[in-house]
């Protein structure tokens, strides 16, 4: 089976000359289909840069990155946009919903960019909101929703194009613990349904929901901690954070 993520020697350098900083320095990561992997590290460890490159929001200065078997480094801007829209689903720390649009319209957005018909988009968006338990809030704008609700809308949005990979960057960073728990439960349910998830966090409790934890320091993975088999991950992890 093709690995969802096969990243080797990714390097990303900011600035130039004397002041240049390597945010990523030889980052290697392989993620198999159906895995739930947490990338953990302190702030400044390069995990956000890793997320941006794994999500095709940024390009590495060096190294190769195969996403679902395809070499991202060889893609043009149009193809990258297509990959972001259809192969990857994003969940951001700050939700990143479009404030002028209702929850339902936000969830529809990636489908409209992917050329799904309006009617089909409406149907799938409604189903996705139902899955995260927010069908009763579909017409509300982000400002009328709590942080936890906004993040669940964002999770619904990340799934509607049935992406190969779900990338979550500190998804609970802006949430109170109850809301965080709800969002993590949703992510676990999604993983149980077979979706591959990469979760980026600095929080050990959050990372413990994953089946495998990759520790980052100074722009590279320094240790991989396979805590539990992926199938049993949910039960053990929730026990650990209670």
């Amino acid at each position: 089976m093709t690995a969802v993520i096969d990243a080797r020697g990714l390097t990303r350098i900011y600035g130039s000359g004397e002041s240049q900083v390597a945010a990523l320095a030889g980052f290697d990561l392989t993620v198999e289909p159906g895995e739930f992997v947490a990338v953990m590290g302190a702030s400044g460890s390069g995990k956000s840069t890793a997320m941006n490159i794994l999500g095709c929001l940024d390009v590495p200065d060096d190294g190769t990155y195969l996403l679902d078997g395809k070499n991202v480094g060889r893609m043009g801007a149009r193809q990258l946009a297509r990959v972001r829209g259809r192969t990857i689903g994003f969940v951001f720390q700050s939700f990143n919903l479009v404030s002028r649009m209702s929850a339902l319209r936000n969830v529809e957005l990636p489908m409209l960019y992917a050329g799904v018909s309006r009617r089909e988009a409406r149907r799938r968006a409604t189903a996705a909101l139902d899955m995260v338990g927010l069908s009763h809030r579909a017409t509300h704008r982000p400002s009328e929703l709590s942080g936890g609700q906004q993040q669940r809308v964002a999770v619904a949005r990340s799934l509607v194009n049935t992406p190969t990979l779900l990338l979550a960057d500190e998804p609970t960073g802006n949430l109170d613990s109850a809301s965080a728990e709800q969002v993590l439960e949703v992510l676990e349910a999604i993983n149980r349904a077979g979706r591959t998830i990469v979760l980026i966090t600095h929080d050990h409790d959050v990372a413990s929901h994953a089946g495998r934890i990759a520790h980052m320091r100074d722009g590279r993975i320094v240790a991989v901690d396979t805590r539990v088999p992926a199938a049993a991950g949910a039960a053990v992890a929730s026990g650990g954070t209670a």
Partner: peptide, 16 residues
Amino acid sequence: TREIGIRKALGATGAA
């Protein structure tokens, strides 16, 4: 600008 970033992350091309 942020909305443009969101849209791009959701698959919008430069042309769109």
